[in-house]
Design a protein around this nucleic acid. Structure first.
Length: 900
DNA sequence: GGCTCCCGCCAAGAC
DNA sequence: GTCTTGGCGGGAGCC
């Protein structure tokens, strides 16, 4: 009795607890949960326990012992432990190991609980009576639910971590801090991992990615779900109203569920999963189950999925015998998953009333329009092709270095270091020896500030709601990719935001990102630090050194080799390239993890760090960009079906990478692989050119002063002389657009260069590039005009590198395809902008003179200046962008070795 | 009484 | 062999 009293007391009052008893209590504590743990902590960590004691002692004075032994005793007597609890206690007492383990856990629990208001309230709000106190201290079932646990878990990490953040989750640590067994953490991380919110980096270690890639993941799952015809299956099951008892696996098939469909499911689940056995442990993993569960929601028109239907489908897929036991087990698991998804605010509990009564169900309340969500922009996701990255990375790095050497710095130190490392590791790089780098934190710091500001004002999804819902087709995985990828870390970190913002504006105006959308006036507020997006005015970026940025939608940045490799990879090793989007749904979903697992944790981590600055930003596509893009991008890249998300993703990535590379390389002809032949890429570009004008390659030169000082020289290859410094004065690049230092130019009119000789643009499909387009830039001043080069605008595809510079053209790294693919949909040939009509749109964003360029520009090439950006939306987008970037960065797995 | 789902055993899998 | 991971189902709590 005495012992029991002490034990209870120990649980309730840490201070009074004695170690001897504490050990024993520990067992109980663990089993009964957190509240018990605190008591354990008391002895060793008085400070931590303090709060607990105080709260518990609401009715007790500090001087007094929080809990009187008598009351405790009474309580125990009155409120005996449950059989389970008693058993646990006995076990604990009998097992030193268990005690130790429990004790250990208990030591850490206070840490978590201390800050956990919920927990505190639950555990600390003690009633007037000892009995009540005791009862209250015992967390209720709900309080211990996986959902709440998941919320606590999620609360530990930012939903949208900054790109610079690399959060590692230690399962042990989390379990201890949350006061639960690690087993519970597995349940959570498995579900989170299924959505790519986390990824396993090592044993007991997970990396936190946040929700950056969630839209993309959901989109993929939706696609996979559609491929698996889950909707049909659900409809079938619902129609049949098969209940648990009536469910007959074999009968279903006979009843009309097409064999092919079933087979498809089997195929889906078997080969693609890590385990070849459909019934293998992994095939039944919560992760996969979670993905399938989510798929059901995503493909469901009602967005409501009943557990029984979900369970049946899962059982069928797993090839398990559809007995009651299996069904029950599945339902349990689904509850587990549902709890986590609910914590993520993706679903909510509902009930579906059917003939046989009310059935538990969940309704999807998460994003539906993934393609238009902010996050989508952000995240290129982990599924970025490792190989591609390897290949292109080095090239990009080389170019980046060159650019850095020429222009000074605009990259963060981290990036610079990375670049240097990469470059140094790339012996064959022609650019390798050029430039060293004077890197500056200036921009990076600004970017960080911006991101932080945005972060503080987190409303990640607010923007999404403002967007125009793209066509269903837009869900196509192929999304426009920001070109900020690694070459210019700053660019991707900062510019991407601007791009996103512009896009957002465009979409808000129902233009779906087409050029010519009037931008909202820059709100010059405190956020003036960012580049202001002024309606009717060009977007201006102010590089730290008054430099330039380019932007371009160079197509086919990849060298033929690269392209071919990509294609081959897509077809040959899709999983490796993009786990999440492999043709096989299951495989797609699992590959990523598998790949990660295959790699040594250390290596993976190192890569992540290495890659962190590199991020593929997938600008959310503007309307339907994917659909249109798919054909184009895929056309010459490979036989992969457009629908194949995997392929598309790869292509996008490749394009993006190449595009960025191109952008960065424009300044140096030497960068890139001279052997590359632009012509090789023309075929694919031709189609694009016809549809999209695009590629706007614009360099922005801006004076620090801001937009007023904005000077843009387009068609650099053409006639820079007309507007300002000779081409020689400017960095030469094959891109039709040039950026001139504003100081040198002063207000000037941008003259449209009618016929920019574009060797590549000769493609049949290309739009006439002879139409000069003149844009006035009111925002810039009456004198300001943008002169567009037809070539640049017209033939994105062929325009790999309009530049006359052979070197540039040859550079494999110059690839504008990403832009093109996007711009497809975005810009129509008949578009006013495209046609070269004077467009107010142009005015809106100087950078993007052409529709394509406009998009591109805002997405990728914005330099943020401390003064320019004010719109909250922009800020938010920026933040999102940065998040995306970070997310993408994490996922990029680029071998330290660099490209071959 | 049925629904939920916590809990932890214990085996598969990884190292 | 040890440790990690997670499938699984008993059974308690909740409605």
């Amino acid at each position: 009795m005495e012992v029991n009293c002490l034990t209870l007391k120990d649980l309730i009052n840490p201070r009074q607890a004695r170690l001897d008893f504490t050990i024993e209590d520990g067992e109980n504590a663990q089993k009964e949960n957190i509240f018990v743990d605190r008591s354990r902590m008391a002895p060793k960590t008085p400070i931590k326990n303090e709060p607990i004691d105080l709260s518990k002692q609401k009715i007790f004075t500090p001087e007094r012992n929080p809990i009187t032994p008598v009351k405790l005793v009474d309580k125990q007597q009155v409120e005996p432990w449950t059989p389970t609890a008693n058993l646990k206690m006995l076990i604990s007492a009998a097992s030193p190991d268990i005690r130790d383990r429990e004790k250990k856990k208990g030591l850490f629990r206070p840490i978590e609980n201390k800050d956990d208001a919920f927990s505190d309230s639950l555990q600390l709000d003690v009633g007037d009576s000892a009995v009540d106190e005791f009862e209250k201290q015992r967390p209720s079932r709900k309080q211990k639910s996986l959902g709440l646990l998941c919320q606590k878990f999620l609360a530990r990490y930012p939903s949208y971590p900054l790109s610079t953040e690399k959060t590692t989750i230690s399962l042990d640590e989390v379990a201890v801090s949350l006061g639960v067994e690690r087993r519970r953490i597995y349940d959570i991380v498995n579900v989170l991992e299924s959505l790519h919110l986390v990824s396993r980096v090592a044993k007991n270690q997970y990396g936190w990615h946040g929700r950056h890639s969630l839209p993309k993941t959901l989109r993929t799952l939706q696609r996979l779900g559609e491929e698996q015809k889950y909707e049909e299956q659900m409809a079938y099951l619902q129609q049949k109203e098969l209940d648990l008892m009536d469910y007959k696996f074999g009968e279903r098939r006979k009843d009309g569920c097409p064999d092919s469909q079933d087979q498809q499911l089997l195929d889906f689940s078997e080969p693609d999963y890590p385990s070849s056995s459909a019934n293998s442990r992994k095939d039944k993993s919560l992760r996969i189950m979670s993905q399938k569960f989510v798929m059901l929601f995503l493909v469901s028109k009602t967005k409501i999925v009943t557990l029984d239907v979900a369970a049946k489908i899962l059982i069928e897929e797993s090839q398990d015998t559809p007995d009651h036991s299996k069904f029950k087990t599945k339902v349990r698991r689904l509850y587990d998953i549902a709890n986590v998804l609910t914590s993520l605010a993706l679903i909510k509990k509902v009930h579906v009333t059917e003939e046989r009564g009310r059935k538990p169900a969940f309704k999807w309340i998460g994003p539906v329009d993934f393609s238009s969500s902010d996050e989508e922009l952000v995240d290129v996701s982990a599924s970025v092709l490792p190989e591609l990255k390897r290949e292109t990375y080095g090239k990009i790095q080389v170019c980046a270095k060159q650019r850095l050497a020429r222009y000074g710095s605009f990259n963060t130190v981290q990036t610079s270091e990375r670049i240097q490392r990469k470059v140094s590791s790339e012996p064959s790089s022609p650019c390798r020896e050029q430039g060293s780098g004077g890197y500056s934190l200036e921009i990076g710091s600004l970017a960080a500030v911006y991101r932080q500001k945005i972060e503080d004002n987190s409303q990640a999804k607010a923007f999404a709601s403002k967007r125009v819902v793209p066509p269903a087709s837009s869900l196509d995985p192929v999304l426009p990719v920001d070109s900020d990828y690694c070459v210019n870390p700053l660019a991707h970190q900062v510019f991407s935001v601007a791009q996103t913002d512009l896009q957002a504006f465009s979409m808000q105006n129902g233009l779906n990102g087409k050029v010519g959308v009037p931008l909202t006036s820059p709100t010059s507020d405190m956020e003036s630090l960012k580049p202001a997006l002024i309606a009717g005015q060009p977007l201006v970026y102010v590089p730290s050194a008054s430099l330039f940025m380019l932007y371009g939608s160079l197509q086919e940045g990849l060298s033929p080799d690269s392209a071919s490799e990509i294609d081959s990879r897509s077809s040959e090793v899709p999983a490796a390239s993009e786990p999440s989007f492999t043709p096989s749904a299951q495989k797609r979903l699992c590959v990523e993890r598998k790949l990660q697992e295959d790699e040594p944790a250390a290596k993976r981590q190192s890569q992540e760090f290495e890659d962190s600055p590199l991020s593929l930003v997938m600008p959310k596509k503007s309307s339907g960009s994917t659909d249109l893009a798919s054909p184009k991008s895929t056309g010459n890249r490979g036989s992969m079906p457009l629908e194949d998300a995997h392929v598309n993703s790869q292509l996008l990535v490749a394009e993006e990478v190449s595009g960025k590379a191109a952008a960065n390389c424009f300044t140096s002809a030497e960068c890139g692989n001279p052997s590359k032949n632009i012509d090789t890429e023309k075929p694919s570009k031709e189609n694009e050119s016809t549809k999209e004008p695009s590629l706007l390659q614009c360099l922005y030169v801006q004076s620090p002063a801001g937009i007023n000082g904005f000077n843009v020289l387009l068609s650099g290859s053409q006639t820079p002389h007309a507007m300002g410094p000779s081409s020689g004065q400017l960095p030469s690049f094959s891109v039709p657009c040039m950026v001139l230092p504003s100081p040198t130019l002063g207000p000037f009119s941008v003259l449209y260069s009618p016929a920019m000789p574009s060797p590549i643009s000769s493609a049949p499909g290309t739009l006439p590039n002879t139409v000069p387009v003149s844009f006035s830039l009111p925002g810039l001043g009456s004198t300001a005009h943008l002169l567009l080069s037809p070539a640049a605008m017209v033939n994105p595809k062929s325009s790999t590198l309009p530049s006359a510079d052979p070197q540039l053209q040859s550079q494999p790294s110059l690839n504008l395809s990403p832009v093109m693919s996007r711009s497809h949909h975005l810009i129509q040939p008949d578009s006013p902008v495209y046609m070269g009509h004077p467009v107010s749109a142009v005015q809106q964003s100087p950078a993007p003179v052409t529709p394509k360029s406009t998009r591109r520009t805002h997405r990728e090439t914005f330099f943020k200046t401390p003064g320019s950006l004010g719109d909250p939306v922009l800020r938010r987008r920026e933040r999102n962008q940065s998040r995306n970037t970070s997310s993408a960065q994490r996922r990029l797995e680029i071998p330290s070795g660099g490209p071959d």
